[in-house]
Write a protein that binds this DNA or RNA. Structure first.
Lengths: 201, 201, 201, 201
DNA sequence: GATGAATGAGCCTTCATTCAT
DNA sequence: GATGAATGAAGGCTCATTCAT
């Protein structure tokens, strides 16, 4: 419970790496299927097909398992966004691609991702977890091609994320609709100063 | 365990009402200070200065305490927003007033509010809890004075809320700054089609 | 609370088996010494010299501990009676041996046995528990060598058991006396149609 | 829990007497309907339509309520048997009448009666409760008109009771059948030395 | 006398974590 | 290195009993 360093002396053999992946995959599945309250180490060990003792060879405590999961999910998410940023040169197409990347990141195995991050929020300092998102923000430019101020970048990214997050949490039926995606793009671009056409015009 | 109706045979004397308020206030404080995982009935009873038995005279189980809290917080929040809506006739001043109401609703005891709602999400159908927010959305109009489509209203309210929520959770230093409030207003108004002036211009 | 299957994934190693026996023995002792109302899992764990957690590795809940005890006691009882039935060929000697087997089964740790069975009655369908006694009844024959009718077999076995049970519960001083045994034998044999000589003749 | 004297300073007014009867009647009903585990003082107070405080004006503790109930039930039972004994002069008709009285005493509100008595067994010294049955036993005579020895009287009454008790507890379908009554009468009479005809002859 | 809100000891059960094998 | 039996702190909840009103 104390101050959990995030990893044990992990034996760096290939087998260990495989075991670790198995555990994390099982953790994601378990989180997805039973939610945070049902997520317990014994169930995880069983699902992963390892003994509870083995679990504790790879992670010092339960908290660090969730942390590792969150870290992994976040890394995957950033990779996806970066891929998009690398491929698109700019303008509306690029903005739309970013939004789409966000959306997909949020719709696949959403519950596991959300819970992992939420669990981290609840227990650790959220800042170190969220640093990485800054990189993503750096990719945006306003309508004049200027980089965004700190607050503007923050508002932009969190607003878009917030709308998507709410859609997921509230089970919105339009989550994967074109209209929703369009609205998110419009939200971002309007805020950045691009002229936009309200729905229906 | 059954179906947990949400309240016990509560004797409606004045004393009882006071006790109930004390419990809910203590619950909010406790949720705020220790988070959901540390929120337990024994700690709540102690903080409220009542016995554990008394707790269970007023609520059938732990879950319903959180539910009551969520209901109360939501009601207070909506009341605040409605008050604002009633006072302002329209335009930028009104939009700013709404944002300000949101901000204040979110900055005071945010964690308790968020956790209560989150806890409800985890256990009940989230939809019936959120109905109320729709009323708030109805208050908005776009730049042409038209009511918003369902998706637009959703995106708008959740985007603004999401940005504020993130600022709170991440401990942003600009949470109560004028700049942040301005940016939120700008976000909302730009999305609604009002011409806006990007920061610094 | 669910459906309480009667056993956990019990690892069948020797150690586990021993632990289980220890728990059941302690349960019998505890039931014997404090009665059903004082029978609680914490006290049981302490008496068994295991942790409360261990208890719950072997049994899903308190109820199933009592159920297991009842099953075990019944099995032991039936085994004892069957042994007697196998050894004696018939007539008075055999009837007397049966009575004696009953008496001993009932005098050793009677309270535990009775309470375990009673507790089961209170929670389950009593019928499936009692099936086994039917086998015992089948061993009896009336004075003409005919098997007994269902009701007669029932009355015979329950009457004898009832008298013994009462003697135990009421702390009768003659519980293990020859006279009491003789009277029980006489009761059974008279009912079965054998000529008997009333006491003192 | 200590050493419960069985009654409080009961105000001997008629109203008090009525309240007491109401409480005992409610106790019997409650015991009957929910069993011993569900029998709690709060539920009893509610069912009786009195406050929990009033309950404790009439009884020092829960135990004494059950004791009073058991005493009342036993008195009613003895009265019934005595009535029978007064009416019948002897022989088979009288024996049959006694058995019938026993049977009815056991079939009406059996559960409440049984539980009350059982609860007493579990907590008090059973002897003082059962003394009264001796009086009933005194009514029997053997085939030669001689009074029964202590052990014989005990065996007789407890055997008959035991068979009936088992029939009730096990939910025997023949509980109120003529055959069952006949068998009980035959059991008693055979034991007392009367010539009997086994079933079917 | 009656009331019923309040009390709190104590019970059942879970689950993160340890360590002997 | 792995295993999984064992541990026990901690938490949700019940209910007999008290006492201020």
């Amino acid at each position: 419970m104390k101050d959990t360093e995030n990893a044990r002396k992990i034996p760096s053999q290939a087998r260990s790496r495989a075991t670790l992946d198995i555990i994390l995959e099982a953790a994601a599945q378990l989180l997805e299927s039973v939610g945070e309250s049902g997520f317990n180490t014994n169930a995880l060990a069983e699902r992963a097909g390892v003994s509870i003792g083995t679990l504790y060879r790879y992670f010092p405590d339960k908290q660090s398992i969730i942390a590792a999961l969150a870290r992994q999910e976040k890394a995957a998410f950033e990779k996806a966004v970066e891929t998009v940023l690398a491929g698109e040169t700019g303008g509306l197409a690029r903005d739309r691609a970013i939004i789409r990347a966000f959306l997909h990141a949020f719709s696949d195995r959403t519950e596991a991702r959300r819970l992992a991050v939420t669990a981290l929020y609840a227990n650790n300092d959220p800042r170190d977890l969220l640093e990485g998102y800054e990189a993503v923000q750096g990719a945006f430019r306003d309508a004049d091609g200027q980089p965004l101020s700190r607050v503007t970048a923050f508002v932009l990214s969190r607003a878009v994320q917030g709308a998507m997050r709410a859609a997921v949490l509230e089970g919105a039926d339009f989550l994967l609709s074109q209209e929703f995606e369009d609205e998110l793009v419009r939200l971002g671009r309007a805020y950045l100063g691009h002229p936009t056409r309200p729905r229906g015009a």
